[in-house]
Computed example of a mutant assay.
Amino acid sequence: MDSYRRWSLIFLFLVPTLLLSASAQQPLVFVTILDSGLARVDYLIPAAGNVSLTVPLIGEPDASYLILVQDEEGMPLAYEINETLGVIEVACLNASEVRISYYTQTLTFKKGKIWAVNITSPYCVKLTLPPNSTVIYFSAVPEEVSVEGDSLSLVFSPGTILVKYIFTYLAPPPEEKPSAPPPGGEGGAEANVTEREAPQAYNATQAANVTAGEEETPRPSGLPSTHLMLLALAAALIAAVIAAARLLRRGPLPYHALELSEEEVEILEALRRMGGGAFQSELQRVLNMPTTSLWRRLRRLREKGLVVIEKRGGRNYVKLA
Rank of each mutant, 00 (worst) to 15 (best):
F279A: 02
E215T: 00
A239K: 14
P130Q: 03
L19P: 09
G213L: 06
F138W: 10
F30S: 05
S133D: 09
E190Q: 11
G213N: 07
G213H: 03
A39D: 05
A212H: 12
R6L: 12
Y4W: 13
A189L: 15
E259A: 08
V193D: 03
N118T: 09
L14T: 05
T106M: 13
D35Q: 14
F11C: 08
L301W: 06
W295T: 07
P199I: 01
T168N: 03
L228V: 04
S139E: 11
T120L: 09
V308K: 09
V87M: 05
A208L: 14
R5A: 02
N82P: 07
Q284W: 03
L268C: 00
V145I: 14
S281Y: 10
R272P: 05
P61M: 07
W295D: 03
Y79S: 11
A95S: 15
Q105E: 15
A78R: 13
M1P: 14
A207M: 14
E282Q: 11
F109C: 09
T84Q: 15
I67F: 04
V90E: 04
P142G: 02
T160K: 05
V41K: 03
A63F: 10
S52V: 08
G184I: 08
I242Y: 10
I10G: 00
I309E: 15
G49F: 07
P27Y: 04
D2H: 11
G74E: 12
G59C: 09
L247R: 13
E264S: 02
L253Q: 10
A63R: 15
N82E: 11
S179G: 01
V125Y: 07
T54L: 12
E216D: 11
N132R: 08
G213M: 04
I33H: 02
S153D: 01
A78K: 08
T194C: 10
G313S: 03
A189T: 10
Y103S: 05
P172Y: 01
M229H: 05
R219S: 06
V125I: 13
E215Y: 09
A78F: 12
A243H: 11
M1D: 13
E214S: 03
G187T: 09
I161F: 01
K110A: 01
P178I: 03
N82Y: 00
A270K: 04
T134N: 10
E266I: 01
G112Q: 11
N288K: 11
L228C: 04
P16T: 04
P76M: 09
V286G: 01
Q105F: 15
L154N: 00
L294K: 06
N209K: 09
I114H: 07
G305I: 11
P173Q: 00
V55P: 04
Y317I: 01
D42P: 06
S133H: 06
A235N: 10
I114N: 09
E97S: 05
A116N: 09
K311Y: 06
I58A: 03
